[in-house]
Design a protein around this nucleic acid. Structure first.
Lengths: 146, 146
DNA sequence: ATAATCTCTACTATGTTAGTAGAGTATACT
DNA sequence: AGTATACTCTACTAACATAGTAGAGATTAT
């Protein structure tokens, strides 16, 4: 697993929208400034997230993006997998890998599988509501109260 | 963490050499054929592994490579880190990451840290002797008996 | 109308990966 | 000595992924 900038940006964006759940939609521009993400890049990311059903949008003057589900119903794992692909540390765990003629008997495959499972165990349990709670100490850019 | 082909090849090579520990050195060509790794690529990998002290070499007619330490004294984690770099899923866990102005208070960083630790827990515990044992069922390309 | 905002496709610069190429050096054996 | 065998080292390259940029188009509130 490797978290790319795109993945990192996606997570931060969703967390922000989670904090503004049930409020007015947030404009790309606001998100871009607040989170320090290049606007045009963020546009693309948000479109992807929309197609995946994580967020919804509204066009026009008071348009913007908002979370499509409750923060408690989105896990870190879902988003990471969607943006950055499978969790396993090596392709052979997930799909065909040209370096392995003999995937079945490979001792390493077993290890990478364990690694994948142990990562999943963490990121599939954490929801954006959990993350929101952890952030809500001094930080008050959020409107949404859990 | 992402295991590249280079990393995958390095691990398979070391496992092979572990199976031939305390025997005659193995020629790159033999390793290359046996493990189905491009010869010239393997040359480079072996040089790297040599510089790191995992293997040692002997030139000339009966030359080749052999493991520099006992299989029980080399962990999977050491080799992976050396070839493919740090274990963490995102750069911010290990070093400066331009996407994070505020690394300290980042809720995600904490998660990635957990993920990194849980990966380490697995791969730093497994030695090449362990792997050898798991392979030694029907497979007998190995001379070294544990 | 028009200003603000999302939508969509295409393009590009940079870096990484997975090699290839070729000349050089050491050693065993005859 | 000479030669075959095998490691050593540096440089080059093709393909792909990442992290953006650019610009024209479609909606909506006022």
């Amino acid at each position: 697993m490797k978290i790319t900038y795109k993945g990192d940006y996606a997570l931060k964006t969703i967390l922000d929208l989670a904090g503004n759940f049930r409020s007015a939609p947030v404009a790309i521009n606001d998100l871009s400034k607040r989170l320090d993400i290049p606007t045009k890049f963020l546009e693309q990311i948000l479109l992807d997230l929309k197609r995946a059903g994580f967020v919804e949008s509204r066009r026009g003057k008071i348009g913007g993006y908002s979370l499509a589900k409750e923060p408690a119903k989105i896990t870190l794992g879902e988003v990471v997998r969607f943006i950055d692909g499978p969790i396993g540390p090596i392709a052979c765990v997930d799909k065909q890998y040209s370096g392995c003629h003999d995937v079945e008997s490979c001792v390493f495959r077993n290890i990478w599988s364990q690694v994948g499972n142990s990562i999943s165990k963490i990121i599939d349990q954490v929801t954006f509501e959990d993350l929101l709670k952890r952030t809500n100490k001094a930080n008050k850019t959020f409107n949404y109260q859990i």
